[in-house]
Amino acid sequence: KLETFPLDVLVNTAAEDLPRGVDPSRKENHLSDEDFKAVFGMTRSAFANLPLWKQQNLKKEKGLF
Rank of each mutant, 00 (worst) to 15 (best):
K1N: 13
K1Y: 11
K1V: 14
K1L: 12
K1W: 10
L2Q: 13
L2F: 15
L2V: 14
L2S: 11
L2D: 09
L2M: 11
L2N: 10
L2H: 12
L2G: 09
E3A: 11
T4R: 09
T4H: 09
T4K: 10
T4P: 07
T4A: 08
F5R: 03
F5K: 03
P6F: 02
P6D: 07
P6H: 03
P6N: 04
P6I: 02
P6L: 03
P6Y: 02
P6S: 06
L7G: 03
L7K: 05
L7N: 04
L7H: 05
L7F: 09
L7D: 02
D8L: 09
D8Q: 11
D8P: 06
V9R: 12
V9H: 07
V9G: 04
V9M: 15
V9D: 06
V9T: 09
V9W: 12
V9C: 11
V9S: 08
L10I: 05
L10F: 04
L10E: 03
L10G: 04
L10M: 05
L10T: 02
L10R: 02
V11Y: 06
V11R: 12
V11L: 14
V11W: 05
V11Q: 12
V11C: 09
N12W: 05
N12S: 09
N12Q: 08
N12F: 06
N12T: 07
T13W: 10
T13E: 06
T13I: 11
T13Q: 09
T13F: 08
A14S: 12
A14P: 13
A14N: 13
A14C: 14
A15Q: 10
A15M: 12
A15P: 15
A15F: 10
A15N: 15
E16W: 01
E16N: 11
E16R: 10
E16Q: 12
E16H: 12
E16F: 01
E16A: 12
D17G: 08
D17L: 11
D17M: 12
D17N: 13
D17C: 15
D17W: 07
L18Y: 06
L18K: 02
L18F: 07
P19S: 04
P19G: 04
P19R: 04
R20F: 14
R20G: 10
R20T: 14
R20A: 15
R20L: 15
R20S: 14
R20E: 15
R20D: 15
G21T: 09
G21C: 10
G21V: 07
G21Y: 08
V22K: 02
V22Y: 04
V22W: 03
V22M: 05
V22R: 02
V22H: 04
D23F: 03
D23C: 10
D23P: 04
D23W: 04
D23V: 06
D23E: 06
D23Q: 05
P24G: 07
P24N: 05
P24K: 07
P24W: 02
P24V: 08
S25D: 15
S25E: 13
S25A: 15
S25I: 10
R26F: 12
R26E: 07
R26K: 11
K27A: 07
K27T: 09
K27N: 04
K27R: 15
K27E: 03
K27Y: 04
K27C: 06
K27L: 15
K27G: 03
E28M: 04
E28G: 02
E28C: 04
E28L: 04
N29M: 15
H30I: 04
H30D: 03
H30V: 02
H30R: 04
H30E: 04
H30K: 02
L31N: 00
L31Q: 01
L31C: 03
S32F: 02
S32V: 03
D33V: 05
D33K: 03
D33N: 08
D33G: 04
D33F: 03
D33Y: 04
E34I: 10
D35N: 05
D35H: 04
D35R: 01
D35I: 05
F36T: 00
F36G: 00
F36K: 00
F36V: 00
F36L: 01
F36R: 00
K37R: 13
K37N: 14
K37F: 15
K37W: 15
K37L: 15
A38G: 08
A38P: 00
A38Y: 12
A38K: 11
V39S: 04
V39E: 02
V39R: 01
V39Q: 03
V39F: 06
V39H: 05
F40W: 01
F40Y: 01
F40L: 08
G41Y: 04
G41Q: 14
G41V: 02
G41T: 03
G41R: 06
G41I: 02
M42I: 08
M42V: 05
M42T: 02
M42P: 00
M42L: 06
T43H: 08
T43E: 11
T43F: 05
T43P: 09
T43D: 14
R44S: 04
R44H: 06
R44P: 06
R44Q: 07
S45K: 12
S45N: 14
S45I: 14
A46M: 13
A46Y: 08
A46K: 09
A46L: 09
F47I: 00
F47S: 00
F47H: 00
F47N: 00
F47R: 00
F47C: 00
F47D: 00
A48E: 13
A48L: 10
A48T: 10
A48P: 00
N49A: 13
N49V: 11
N49L: 14
N49K: 13
N49E: 14
L50N: 00
L50E: 06
L50G: 00
L50P: 00
P51V: 02
P51L: 01
P51W: 01
P51F: 01
L52Y: 13
L52I: 13
L52Q: 10
L52C: 15
L52T: 08
W53Y: 09
W53F: 09
W53R: 08
W53H: 10
W53G: 08
W53P: 07
W53I: 09
K54P: 00
K54W: 11
K54I: 12
K54F: 12
K54A: 13
K54R: 10
K54T: 11
K54G: 06
K54N: 10
K54E: 14
Q55I: 02
Q55R: 08
Q55F: 00
Q56F: 10
Q56G: 07
Q56E: 14
N57Y: 13
N57A: 14
N57F: 12
L58N: 01
K59S: 03
K59Q: 03
K60M: 12
K60C: 14
K60G: 05
K60Y: 12
K60E: 13
K60S: 09
K60V: 13
K60A: 11
K60L: 11
E61H: 07
E61G: 06
E61F: 06
K62H: 10
K62N: 11
K62W: 05
K62M: 08
K62D: 01
K62S: 07
K62I: 07
G63Q: 05
G63M: 05
G63H: 05
G63E: 04
L64P: 02
L64I: 07
L64W: 08
L64F: 11
F65L: 15
